[in-house]
Each structure stands twice: as structure tokens, then as C-alpha cells.
Nucleic acid binder design. Structure first.
Length: 501
RNA sequence: CGGGGUGUAGCUCAGACUGGUAGAGCGCUACGCUGGGGGUGUAGAUGUCGCAGGUUCAAAUCCUGUCACCCCGACCA
């Protein structure tokens, strides 16, 4: 007797959410822990996802006038010291290179030698090194704006790490721009935030709230930090991207100055904005279910897997031929501006096992093709956004011609699901006991509540409930004024509270 | 950096209290029966028992030291 397993992933989300998450990452072959503390190995299926994220975002950046460049991994320690708040924010999590050579020690072990005159910090973010470079590039208002993005890895020596959500090394993009005026820099900050929102919603099928951070949650050294915030299935919030208005802080510390149209020497205005491999964690926790990953079609590494069902060896050649033909027909179709991507999985392993591997990987569509289907010029189809039992037969021609619509429908379905989930777990709360109940007795979620604007209240709420202000929505005053949920002091509008990652 | 814990096969772990030639399940390899819910039979391969000392005729097991990792806190894209 085979033991009956209900879900492909164990434990389920309900049973143990953090463990479920780890298991999904592993079962979907997205990434695994490496021998290096806090650092992950991103496996081909996960990396392909990142490549698709990159391609899509890069297009947005180019379309908004940015170009890519690359700056050094190492930052001289003295650069980091230039911006006071910035040092304070990152000093505790910096990897530092102090030597440049290894020598054989007495017991055959290698020991560092050749101490550097000035230690180098492995970039936790590149504002300082890029700022120093920009200072050399900028002399005149004619040199502005500078609109550059870099795709890179950064290192932050975090105490506790989790695959994709928080790793010591992660991949990201960081945009760094320089502008003539405050207004223009602010416009850029908002523009890129909106790019992130659009990308999150249209590609990742992950609805996000946008707004600004409170002073306490700001990027170290920023005048203002804008963010996109998503709600995960365990009702905790995930900061999925940030866009910073840096004012003149970094321009001053790096000496980015230019001669203005009026001939005056002026300090420039800068912005920076980034999203990271954390987005993958966000996608998992937004869409994946107890059977594993679910890839939104627009970013899926592959759209369709064809699974040949071979009952007799004598059928094998004919079925494989039919499968490859089907793949070719599908590849000739386009979905969302790129050719449909198809894998034919002809590995000689048990058919059930094989199918489940793809379920766990989250491929949008599985197509089983056996002798019966071949005879009828048909296919047998399963969509990852539907129940695993909901498979349906269809003529091949019909399936092929409708594939783009199926994928589009699935993309929409995933977004709608996530949107509904968020709506169901977002609540306006007007008094403290309801607020406490929402987070302590209930599952939590986004609480829209009034806040008196003081750090004191923010801290008290965090201390008591581990709940933070995720963002102050741009349009928060439209809902009208009210009284702070904790202090009762006047408030201009509701802000978003949640527990967060 | 405080408190707790764990290092044994690729993975998850038993064996340790009471020293006596290294174990299980899963995975892996080969062949067969299978194949549309992840099945099954037979035959295999795999270990400096984290590292270094000590006690002993004998150490995965006892002792000392050391390193690494995990969990709970404080800190974070």
C-alpha cells in the first residue's frame, strides 16, 4: 500500500508557514543553502525566474531613459564614513576586506597576509562609491541628469537569514540618479516607485500598496523613502521595493556639484531605488500553495511542460514525435510579447512522480500526452492555478490556438486571487482594543489606522505588538482626519500597520 | 552579543546514559514489472562518526579543548 499524501508540500501553510516556505523553495528547485553562512545557491529554475524579472524590469528602466553601468564591488572604508546616518545604518552589517594575500602558516593552513592600507568594504549598497564617481562626472548643469542603473550583488551581514527573503549576499538592481533640482529628483523617485508597482502587479501578479516610510523606517541617509508593500499569505507584510529621495545629503558628502544656468556653483540632488531577489520570496509567499510553487505566466521560466505517457515501448517513438510536434506548434505562439516556452520532459522516470515534480516547480501548464490523445489529435491539460484534479481533454489545434489566452487568464486569475486575499485581510481600525485583537487574536494583516505622527507612538506599538507602520499612503488624507489609535491625538489620515518580514 | 541545542552515508536521523569491528528510512545505481496522483520487485554502491588531544586492551560512545551550524532574543532589502 502506498501511503496517501494529500499535499505535495509538507507541512502545509496552515501547519507551519515558515517551514512550508523553505520546503517550497527546495521542492521547486529554486535555491538551496550553501556552505557559506547566510548565502544561497540559486538553482537554474530560480535563476531563470530572476533572469525574467531582470529582463522585464530592465525594459522599464530603459523605457524611462536609464542606462546600465557597473561600479566596483569594493568600497574604501573612508567613503562609507562620509555620510553620517549612512554609516550608522550599515556599519553593523558590513563585510570588510583587510588583506590581499594568503601565506602558508606553520600547520599548513593559509593565513591572511599583506594588510591593506585602507580596508575595503564589500558594498552593502553603492551610494557612496557611485556618488564619488558622479562627483568627477558632473561639472555643469549640462551634465545632468545622470540616469544610471546597475545590476549587481551586494552583501549585508545579517544575523538571521532566509532563502530569498534575507540572505547575506543578494542580487539586485540599484538605480542612482543625479538631478539639477529637488523637484526633478522627487519626480524621479516617484516615477520609479510607480515602475515597481506596475511591475509587481502586471508581471508578478502581486498587488502592492505604495506610500512613504516613516522617519524611523527610512533608508539611512535618505530624506524620504518610498516603498511598495505586499501582503503575504501568512498576513505579514513584505517590503518589496524602495525608492529613495536622497535630497542633497549624498551629493554633499560626495561633492557632486555643478555650475548652474546662472553660473552659480550648486549641489546636486540624487535618488536611488532598488529591488532584489527578495521579489522571488514575495512571489512564493503570494502565489504558492500546499502543492508548491505557482509561477505567474509572465515571469515563468517555462510556460508549458509536455509529459509523454508511454504505456508500451512500441508507442514511444510515435508519442515522442507527437509531443515534439505539439511543442513546435506551441513555440510558434506568442504570449505577452515573447514566444511560448515549452519543455518536453521525456526522462524515463515514473509518470506520476514526474508530473508532481512540475507541479512543485509551479510551471503554469502541464500537458499529458498518451496514446489515446495521440489517436484523437488531442491533449490532456492541467493548469497550475486550478486544482490538481481538474484536468481536461481538448483537441490539439484548439489548445494551441488558445494557449496565449489561457496564460493570460491564469496571470489575471493569480492577481485577482492575491488582490482578494489582501482585501479580505485589510481592515480600518479605530480603537486600540480592536487593534490589539486584530494582531493578537486574529491573523493580522493590513490595519488602516490613524497615527499621531510621533515616533513615540510608533515605537510603543512596535514594542507591544511587533507591528510597524509599513507605509503612509500618498492619498491617506483623502480618507479624512481622525484620532490616533493609541494616543487619541489628532491624525491627518490613516497609515498602514502590519507585522512584517 | 546573551540564553538553549546539534555535529554519524547525498538527506533526515537512531546508536551514546551502560565503551567491544557502523545502522535505518529516504535518495542514488543496474535490471524487470509499471506508467494519465508521485507505484513496485530483485541486486548493489556510499562513512577519517565536525576537528585536536586525553583515559582505555578497546572510543561514535567517557573526559578536556576547539571549530562549525541551528533555534529563541536584540538588528535588518
Amino acid at each position: 500500500m502506498s501511503k496517501q499524501v494529500k499535499t505535495a508540500i509538507s507541512p502545509t501553510r496552515e501547519e507551519n508557514y515558515p517551514e512550508w516556505y523553505q520546503q517550497v523553495v527546495r521542492a521547486a528547485e529554486l535555491a538551496e543553502n550553501s556552505d557559506v553562512r547566510g548565502c544561497m545557491v540559486i538553482k537554474p529554475w530560480g535563476y531563470a525566474l530572476w533572469e525574467n524579472i531582470r529582463t522585464a524590469l530592465d525594459k522599464y528602466f530603459k523605457d524611462t531613459g536609464h542606462v546600465n553601468a557597473y561600479f566596483p564591488l569594493f568600497i574604501p572604508l573612508s567613503y562609507l564614513e562620509k555620510e553620517a546616518e549612512h554609516v550608522e545604518g550599515f556599519a553593523k552589517e558590513c563585510a570588510v576586506v583587510t588583506h590581499h594575500r594568503l601565506e602558508a602558516g606553520p600547520n599548513g593552513k593559509l593565513i591572511p597576509a599583506g594588510e591593506l592600507e585602507e580596508p575595503l568594504v564589500v558594498r552593502p549598497t553603492s551610494e557612496t562609491i557611485i556618488g564619488a564617481t558622479y562627483a568627477k562626472w558632473v561639472q555643469s548643469y549640462r551634465d545632468l541628469p545622470i540616469l544610471i542603473n546597475q545590476w549587481a550583488n551586494v552583501v549585508r551581514w545579517e544575523m538571521r537569514t532566509r532563502l530569498f527573503l534575507r540572505t547575506a549576499e543578494f542580487l539586485w538592481q540599484e538605480g542612482h540618479t543625479v538631478h539639477e533640482t529637488s523637484e526633478e529628483a522627487w519626480e524621479e523617485t516617484v516615477k520609479m516607485l510607480k515602475v515597481y508597482k506596475q511591475f509587481a502587479e502586471e508581471y508578478m501578479a502581486m498587488p502592492v500598496l505604495i506610500g512613504e516610510k516613516t522617519a524611523g523606517e527610512r533608508f539611512p541617509g535618505a530624506v524620504n523613502t518610498l516603498c511598495i508593500e505586499a501582503l503575504m499569505q501568512d498576513c505579514k507584510a513584505l517590503q518589496a521595493g524602495t525608492s529613495h529621495f536622497l535630497g542633497q545629503n549624498f551629493a554633499k558628502s560626495s561633492g557632486i556639484q555643478f555650475q548652474s544656468r546662472e553660473g552659480q556653483l550648486e549641489t546636486a540632488w540624487t535618488t536611488s531605488w532598488g529591488v532584489s531577489t527578495r521579489l522571488i520570496g514575495g512571489m512564493i509567499m503570494t502565489h504558492a500553495d500546499d502543492d508548491g510553487m505557482i509561477m505567474p505566466p509572465r515571469l515563468a521560466p517555462s510556460h508549458i511542460v509536455i509529459l509523454p505517457i508511454i504505456r508500451k515501448d512500441s508507442d514511444e517513438a510515435a508519442i515522442l514525435k507527437y509531443c515534439n510536434e505539439t511543442a513546435a506548434l506551441l513555440r510558434a505562439q506568442n504570449y505577452a510579447g515573447r514566444p511560448v516556452e515549452v519543455v518536453v520532459d521525456s526522462r524515463d522516470i515514473n509518470a506520476g512522480e514526474k508530473g508532481w515534480q512540475w507541479v512543485k516547480k509551479g510551471i503554469p501548464v502541464r500537458v499529458e500526452i498518451g496514446p489515446r490523445d495521440m489517436e484523437n489529435e488531442a491533449v490532456y491539460v492541467a493548469r497550475r492555478d486550478k486544482g490538481a484534479k481538474e484536468k481536461y481533454g481538448q483537441s490539439r489545434a484548439e489548445f494551441v490556438s488558445s494557449i496565449a489566452d489561457v496564460l493570460a487568464d491564469m496571470q489575471k486569475n493569480l492577481f485577482d486571487r492575491a488582490f482578494t486575499f489582501r482585501a479580505e485581510n485589510t481592515r480600518e481600525i479605530d480603537n486600540w482594543s480592536d487593534f490589539v485583537a486584530f494582531f493578537k487574536e486574529g491573523r493580522g494583516g493590513f490595519a488602516l489606522a490613524h497615527w499621531d505622527g510621533t515616533e513615540e507612538t510608533e515605537k510603543k506599538i512596535n514594542d507591544e505588538l511587533s507591528v510597524t507602520i509599513r507605509c503612509i499612503p500618498f492619498d491617506c488624507e483623502q480618507g479624512g482626519a481622525g484620532k490616533c489609535v493609541l494616543s487619541g491625538q489628532p491624525s491627518k489620515g490613516r497609515v498602514v500597520f502590519a507585522k512584517s518580514y
